[in-house]
Design a protein around this nucleic acid. Structure first.
Lengths: 353, 353
DNA sequence: CGCCAGAATGTAAAGCTTTACACCAGAGCG
DNA sequence: CGCTCTGGTGTAAAGCTTTACATTCTGGCG
């Protein structure tokens, strides 16, 4: 079907059939210099009203749209923020990302999502975007990256790095997160108040600081109720499968069997639910299960999951705001703690007997 | 804690404390011109072995890393591919994205994820990245965008646009997808072969071409079995909630009640499962449910979901390969169809009585 | 009236790379 | 020996914008 065109020189112009108008064309049309056009766009207050008008007209007339690459090159910035996360397929992150994008776009920034899926090399590649101005800042949604990448960052108080949800035990970055200790303790307290005396926990990776915090909250809350001797923590990886496996461990192997299980993620809680089902253990009659994150599924599993909800959208927004402030050279509150909420659904109840 | 530094001029150098070495520095160190350095990197075969060595050394010595912004400006490209999707929080897309990123990174491209979450303005903004060389191409994972954006694209055979999963009824873009008609017909056939005679369907948005295809497959498969008169299709939006609501419509309102429901997404199928549970309808004894997509959760719901699986990773890979070929000016097979698989789990069985 | 401040604008360099073109030397060949 | 290639390299322009600095002009003030 190839129409006309055929007679073209070679195979040039696959893009930009007619090359886009540049700032020069605008200057010509407006009868002023390129500098003035540039100023009219970037610092309107430095240009007279009349000129501003003429420039605006000229821009519309020639259909000018600024070449961002050239601008970024000159300004030594990219207007791009990278967010590093361990696993893009975990729905927990999507709402956070939405929050981030919302404020980023409003400020004229792009968000580049960096999936590190447990390959530390990836993280390094993304960090390398920083010194070359391919990215202006990074928001970390994972602490599972080579420490060397960030270790020097807490010295420079204005390094364009912020953590969201997670944190490092040894590097002090600006952070927005929840109080994991509190949230966990509160969940345990809730279970204890229902009468549970044997409360086990499926933790996330024990190397993960937020899991440590949660486990600390778990132990302390148990201790406060004098239930320390029944404590039992097993390790998962936040995913369905590990929840199922560890659920089996806790429910099939142990004697006496726990009457409640607190999980560090909804996916693992749902895995535990499956294990219980398979073993013929009724939830919540014989076993209570609490998850963490309040992902979409948690309302649709059987039974609906009691879980700790984080304000994910807000976490994303705040983290991005914090990073943009950092980039603007403004002072920031280096630690923001947002509140959680225990959402009680159908997977928890009083223990049998 | 602010160390030394305090005595700095103003607040300059927040980045690039020591400005990065440029290609000039390398040229100096290697005793050649910048052109030669550039060639040594981009077209090694055009440079003598000896020079190549010297350049390599010089690069290592001065710690040079190319300025991508400058390169992109000069080359009028961005090495960035945008993928437009309707909803980032839908886990269906994450595996596709992984596939895309895999081949993109290998080829030195970045993937920018564009979440259009039902705001058509967003899509337009992303399309505008194309003429300004902020993006080199777009992969569409949604057909729900203003038609004007793509309508002229099928004329130019080499427009850097490809569709994955979805397609337009009226615009003929290079596409990689499954055979939705087939896949749907196969699922219905499977249900019919179990003995089901009243098979309803929860479709995705009826304006969506892939849903039309699936519904066509549904009707034809029914007709082939002489079951046309029992056909019943209701519309959802792929999400949990709509599945639940339409499940209620089908199961609570209708007489006689369908004995099987075929859903256009796993989320909706899981919603139907919840509706059935709430109405005390046993699955699979009294009702069979089939989903679509085989998302992670489908193995962990109750009962485990029978579903149509798409090769998501491969779809992502192929789509990206196709786009990169397009960009390279190579000819491409404009329509790639990948095969699906019906994964039978526990949510389907022979109808009662 | 002369000078100065300040507003408005222009000039040109800088940001870093790629690449068209020119140049040179050496090889092969008539 | 002279010519033509060709492989290897250098020069400088181009890609587009921003911005430091220079310039012009105006009005105000002493």
């Amino acid at each position: 079907m190839l129409r006309a065109k055929q007679t073209l020189p070679k195979k040039t112009l696959s893009k930009r059939t007619l090359s886009m108008p540049t700032i020069k064309d605008v200057a010509l049309a407006a009868g002023c210099s390129t500098a003035t056009v540039s100023r009219a766009l970037a610092n309107p207050e430095k240009v007279s009203e009349a000129t501003r008008q003429r420039v605006a007209h000229a821009i519309a007339e020639v259909g000018y749209v600024p070449n961002v690459a050239a601008r970024n090159l000159r300004r030594a910035e990219s207007r791009t923020i990278v967010t590093l996360l361990p696993d893009i397929s975990n729905p927990f992150f999507s709402e956070i990302i939405n929050g981030m994008e919302e404020v980023a776009h409003q400020a004229g920034y792009q968000v580049l999502i960096g999936d590190c899926e447990r390959d530390p090399g990836r993280a390094e590649a993304y960090f390398n975007l920083l010194p070359t101005n391919q990215a202006d800042g990074i928001i970390l949604l994972t602490s599972d990256i080579p420490r060397a990448l960030v270790s020097h960052a807490d010295a420079r108080a204005d390094a364009p790095l912020v953590m969201a949800c997670e944190f490092f035990s040894d590097v002090d970055l600006p952070t927005v997160a929840i109080d994991n200790y509190q949230a966990s303790a509160h969940a345990i307290d809730y279970l204890a108040s229902l009468g549970h005396a044997r409360i086990a926990s499926v933790s996330g990776p024990v190397g993960n600081p937020i899991c440590r915090e949660r486990t600390r909250g778990y132990h302390d809350a148990l201790a406060a109720r004098g239930l320390s001797n029944s404590a039992r923590v097993v390790e998962g990886d936040f995913g369905f499968r590990s929840g199922y496996q560890q659920g089996m461990t806790l429910l099939d192997g142990m004697e006496p069997r726990p009457s409640a299980i607190f999980c560090h993620s909804d996916e693992m809680a749902i895995g535990v639910l499956k294990a219980a089902r398979q073993l013929g253990i009724g939830v919540p009659e014989e076993l209570s299960v609490v998850g963490f994150d309040n992902i979409g599924f948690s309302e649709y599993c059987e039974p609906e999951l009691t879980t700790v909800s984080q304000p994910r959208h807000e976490i994303g927004q705040q983290a991005m705001r914090m990073l943009l402030s950092l980039l603007a050279g403004e002072a920031v509150v280096r630690r923001q703690t947002l509140s959680t909420q225990l959402i009680v659904r159908k997977s928890t109840g009083r223990p049998a007997a």
